[in-house]
Design a protein around this nucleic acid. Structure first.
Length: 326
DNA sequence: AGCCAGGTAATCC
DNA sequence: GGATTACATGGC
């Protein structure tokens, strides 16, 4: 599979305007995130793809103190509107304008959060995915092991996404709702191995083709709105709200983070989801989502799901993505 | 073999 | 309403 070459078209300097500390590495790279091929990280740099309208965009990110330098690579006509859109997208994706001081002060007073804060202070939630893309991620997480989620994600991106090369790195890029809407449920089931999700994905595509991120940001009750989609329940709705809409109070609880949080805040191997949520809200009023993020990332800090790339390993990374899949 | 994964919807009482 | 149960798939 030969990647599309993206040309360098822009450099953006984005100041971190939100208050509180800023930790660039852990804002860009999350130790708990599974491997998608949509992004790659070394200690000092990150690469990520975005779909901006129909444009495929590659971004190389690095931080100098409290300024994020984003080098932009594109495959087509990069217009001022694309630039504006991308600037807003990057600021929102990494929470550069979000205030973290209040959470950090709150967390400093919670004993269970002490070590976590020492390791991760300044981490902001990362969600380079838009509403549609994060909904698809959440769909692929439903009732399967992370191994199968990774497998289904790879199938979808290899068969229906893009492969691009820029700044020396090869990455995959998302399909748009319109693009995936062309694919039949039979293909999604038989070729992409989505199981019962094959019936849901077309509903997701139809909904998010009608309702853009801009529309949804204005939604009265986003959770209620997206639960109209077949295959979106409380968990997926909370993931969308907490990640794409960055609601610091929203927290999508599942059997995975439930066990992590039970140990961290209830001193138990497991607990009822209501008990976990209640305690999390009690300790971090209005900031349950942020607190959950910190606990979960800390859990994986010493054994990341997708470890940082060694700069010498980039050729091997590129070859792995460009190799035809069996 | 059978159970269970980073859930959801349909179908019970 | 709240408690089952089927839903696809694949790994252990």
């Amino acid at each position: 599979m030969r990647p599309t070459h993206l040309d360098h078209t822009d450099t953006l300097e984005l100041p971190v305007t939100g208050d509180g500390p800023f930790n660039a590495l852990h804002t860009f790279w999350k130790p708990s995130h599974y491997l998608t091929g949509l992004e790659a990280h070394t200690e000092t740099r990150s690469w990520r793809t975005f779909r901006v309208d129909d444009l495929v965009v590659g971004v190389r990110l690095l931080a100098e103190d409290r300024t994020v330098i984003a080098d932009v690579y594109t495959d087509g006509d990069y217009k001022p509107a694309h630039r504006d859109h991308l600037i807003r997208r990057l600021i929102a994706s990494y929470g550069l304008d979000e205030n973290l001081a209040e959470f950090t002060e709150l967390a400093a007073g919670v004993p269970q959060m002490r070590d976590v804060l020492r390791a991760l202070s300044g981490m902001r939630q990362s969600c380079p995915e838009d509403h549609f893309e994060i909904a698809v991620i959440a769909l692929l997480l439903q009732n399967v092991t992370i191994h199968r989620t990774t497998q289904m994600t790879r199938n979808l991106l290899v068969h229906h996404g893009r492969l691009v090369h820029f700044d020396g790195i090869t990455l995959r890029a998302w399909f748009t709702p319109t693009e995936i809407a062309q694919v039949t449920p039979e293909t999604l089931k038989e070729q992409d191995r989505l199981g019962f999700r094959a019936k849901s994905l077309p509903h997701y595509a139809a909904f998010f083709r009608e309702h853009t991120t801009e529309d949804l940001q204005a939604a009265d009750d986003l959770g209620e709105a997206v639960q109209q989609i077949k295959g979106v329940g409380p968990y997926t709705a909370a993931v969308i709200a907490s990640h794409a809409s960055r609601d610091p109070a929203a927290f999508g609880i599942d059997v995975w983070n439930r066990k992590i949080l039970a140990r961290r805040i209830l001193d138990a191997d497991d607990a009822a989801p209501e008990a976990v949520t209640r305690r999390l809200n009690q300790l971090f009023p209005g900031r349950a989502g942020t607190a959950g993020l910190y606990f979960v990332e800390h859990e994986y800090l010493n054994a990341p799901v997708a470890p940082l790339l060694d700069p010498d390993g980039i050729d091997a990374w590129n070859e792995a993505l460009e190799r035809p899949t069996p």
